[in-house]
Design a protein around this nucleic acid. Structure first.
Length: 242
DNA sequence: AATCAACCCAACCGCTCCTTC
DNA sequence: TGAAGGAGCGGTTGGGTTGAT
């Protein structure tokens, strides 16, 4: 029983994508945009599952992807965000323009985990290894993430700030706002620059024209948009507590 | 040069969440 | 209100590549 499969497995290709398949997918999305993934393969003449097409596009073919090695700054940012968000790779990816959740997840598992371990830091709890070992015997969850936030949000917030005082975590929940909204209406998307979205307004990292995206004392109705909730980088749904 | 192990990363799988009816 | 469909997410796997012996 259970759900019907997302596609007819018997007539779909699996495994590595060929150049021809890539070209077909790119051509189709250029012509029609990212529409319904389920129906896309048939429409594009691809013998692939819709999920497979989506993954291929998002992780590999999207034109805005940044290829190449991670910088030291990206490393540190990933570590910092992981300490706050846990394994919420899509949320973390939302803060790293041009990087995908899959890419960051792979990079975490292959590089950063080891890097943290070599520093004597538990990559799961972001605490010193000996301390992490001790607390794990304590049965008390110590990971600071949204997964544990619902029960003790206030406590977590203060702990997060304690560890990352440079990150402004005045989170606000607002209705989803899609980046292409402005595009669709012909307007220019006014999302904050990367620096601003990390709470670095007026710093050297801020490259935007100082759009007021709400520091805590900034815009009256909008709080600070740390996770890009208003800028459309992320959808507020992603922040739901488990 | 051959073999083996470790590493890397693209892709798959199964699940959850959201939307629609 | 609940069921079904679709999209997205995170964990895992498998094949290719690289480095060591």
């Amino acid at each position: 029983m259970g759900r019907s499969p997302c596609c007819e497995k018997a007539h779909t290709n699996k495994g590595a994508w060929t150049k021809e398949e890539d070209d077909r997918l790119i051509a189709y999305i250029r012509a029609h945009g990212e529409g319904c993934w389920r129906s896309l393969p048939k429409a594009a003449g691809l013998l692939r599952c819709g999920k497979s097409c989506r993954l291929r596009w998002i992780n590999y073919l999207r034109p805005d992807l940044k290829r190449g090695n991670f910088t030291e700054e990206e490393d540190e940012l990933i570590i910092k965000l992981h300490s706050l968000l846990g394994n919420k790779w899509s949320l973390i990816a939302g803060r790293l323009p041009g990087r995908t959740d899959n890419e960051i997840k792979n990079y975490w598992n292959t590089h950063i985990r080891r890097k943290l371990l070599s520093r004597g830091i538990d990559p799961t709890t972001h605490r010193p290894l000996n301390e992490a070992a001790a607390s794990s015997q304590n049965q008390e969850a110590t990971t600071i993430s949204f997964a544990s936030a619902s029960a003790c949000k206030q406590e977590d917030d203060s702990r997060i700030l304690e560890r990352c005082p440079d990150l402004n975590l005045e989170l606000t929940i607002s209705p989803p706002h899609h980046q292409n909204q402005a595009d669709q209406s012909g307007g220019r998307t006014r999302s904050p620059c990367f620096g601003c979205s990390l709470g670095l307004q007026n710093s050297k990292d801020c490259s935007c024209d100082n759009i007021n995206i709400g520091t805590s004392s900034g815009s009256s109705t909008s709080g600070y948009d740390f996770l890009g909730l208003k800028s459309g980088v992320l959808d507020y749904r992603s922040l739901e507590m488990k």
